[in-house]
Design a protein around this nucleic acid. Structure first.
Length: 447
RNA sequence: GCUGGGAUAGCCUAGCCUGGUAGGGCGCAGGUCUGGAAAACCUGUUCUCUCACGAGAUCGGGAGUUCAAAUCUCCCUCCCAGCGCCA
């Protein structure tokens, strides 16, 4: 959540930020109204409590002097009267505080000055490209626009086989039976594609371990308190699965257990930065995406992901955003998957992020760049919700938190299948860095 | 799942039986002293409101008893130990 003190002191920052995000400023007006109301009420309550304490102390004094002192009875009834007034004011205040808290929690993080003010993913600002894209003739116009004519490419006379067909033809995924037993967007990943996934995960774990990350497998479920602190309300309504009868939610990313891992803790300045990579299954309801990517394994309810996470000092978070984005880009470069990096529009950022860069891999059969990595700087927003502080020389401060995908299994597997298919879709070449992990160089036909 | 023990400020701890302003230590910050430091001593060191003076809240969470609850009663959460069950 946001810094309420800062909101009171410099409301303009928040008004500008909300306007630039395109969410309107009513929520801020609501907050200030409730805050005033609360302050006035609180003052009355405080004064009454002060009065009560005075009387109570007087009783205490009299009792010590003489237990049967005549004044005590009257004072007792005074206190009862004061208490009744306090109770009624407190009841009013509880509702005000509830409403105010709700307002505070729905105010988004302050935008980074480098976040572009725009709306719609199609207006995300391209930052750079890498690699040589294979582009089918019909897609060339779109490609030139999306890559800003900065990217190497070769043209293809035939459209590459879609991963949807490839996985079926090659017997790498069983969607039909997964659908039968669990529903759409579930899958059995089979044989060499499963081994390729494991290779991808192993490769990435090694890669991040060498770059100062401790690697963890987190709890796949979180209680409400931890989940609330680590994420926002939108995620609850659209993304998360709730376990019936338990105070538990399935995680949608290991970002959340890693962030809440240090909740309520005080860190020493010398412990920072803390780099943690989490490998986990991620569960997503995909409630808002009916009809999108309904075939294949591009958008599914369950996938494996390795996520980078950093806790750092406020002044360092800008540099760490560069670091984790560069780590992710390097992985894609090593795999040889062409991509572009975009700076995500202010209107499309989640509430926690002050700025976000996406890596969009090139998918030749779709003829599109699609998101495979998302790197965000949440500044102190998430740390404040989770109460993660460190001892700084000038006092205690909230840390900054950052997160970025390293590898999301299904999407990257799709990118490999589309970019590394050979012989008209009869064979998939395994990216060189993965060969030692996989133990084979190609995937062909049914194993 | 059962039994017992526990949760007090950044950390450690006293207070609980017997209700009446939460005390001490460590660490940290400032000061006195010093050529400089250490030691010693003094002051401060949870949160909220207030320009300030000051006031209020706070002893894992919630409810109750009471004029008054860290303290008594009930419920809940988590941690530790033992027992039981267990891939």
């Amino acid at each position: 959540m946001i810094d309420v003190k800062l909101l009171r002191e410099k409301p303009d920052i928040f008004y500008t930020s909300c306007r630039n995000r395109g969410i309107g400023t009513e929520i801020l007006d609501t907050f200030f109204m409730l805050d005033e109301e609360w302050r006035a009420n609180q003052k009355k309550i405080n004064d009454l409590r002060h009065r009560r304490n005075e009387i109570t102390h007087e009783i205490s004094r009299l009792v010590k002097e003489d237990k049967n002192s005549t004044g005590i009875r009257g004072l007792k009834s005074d206190v009862k009267e004061v208490n009744a007034r306090i109770d009624s004011l407190e009841e009013d205040n509880r509702k005000i505080v509830d409403d105010r808290e709700r307002a505070i929690w729905s105010i988004p993080n302050v935008l980074d000055e480098n976040a572009p003010v725009c709306f719609g993913d199609e207006n995300n600002v391209p930052v750079r490209t890498w690699g040589k894209a294979s582009v089918f003739d019909d897609d060339l116009d779109d490609f030139m626009k999306e890559s800003r004519r900065e990217m190497d490419y070769e043209t293809l006379k035939a459209r590459p086989v879609s991963h949807v067909d490839l996985i079926e033809d090659m017997g790498l995924v069983d969607l039909a039976r997964a659908g039968k037993i669990a529903g759409s967007r579930f899958y059995f990943l089979k044989n060499r594609l499963l081994k390729l996934e494991m290779a991808l995960m192993n490769y990435t774990v090694d890669y991040l371990s060498e770059r100062g990350f401790s690697v963890v497998e987190p709890p796949l479920m979180l209680n409400l308190k931890s989940m609330e602190g680590a994420t926002d309300l939108e995620t609850f309504s659209e993304t998360l699965y709730k376990i019936e009868g338990e105070d538990l939610y399935l995680i949608s990313t290991s970002e959340h257990p890693i962030a809440s891992m240090l909740s309520g803790e005080f860190l020493d300045e010398s412990e920072l930065p803390i780099r943690v990579a989490g490998m986990s299954v991620c569960f997503r309801r995909e409630a808002g995406s009916h009809g999108k990517d309904t075939k294949g394994i591009f958008r599914v309810h369950q996938f494996n992901k390795i996520e980078q996470f950093v806790f750092c000092k406020p002044e360092d978070s800008g540099d760490f955003l560069k670091e984790i984005l560069e780590n992710a880009e390097q992985i894609y470069r090593n795999l040889g998957i062409p991509y572009r990096v975009v700076n995500v529009c202010s209107g499309e950022l989640g509430r926690l992020a002050s700025i976000k860069y996406d890596i969009e891999a090139w998918f030749p059969s779709q003829g599109k760049f699609r998101e495979v990595v998302s790197a965000s700087n949440d500044t102190d927003y998430q740390a404040r919700s989770l109460a993660i502080k460190y001892r700084a020389s000038g006092g205690n401060e909230f840390v900054h938190t950052l997160n970025s995908t390293a590898i999301a299994s299904t999407r990257t597997l799709v990118a490999i299948m589309e970019n590394f298919q050979e012989d008209g879709g009869k064979r998939i070449r395994v990216p060189a860095p993965l060969v030692p992990y996989a133990g084979f160089e190609t995937i062909e036909g049914v194993d």
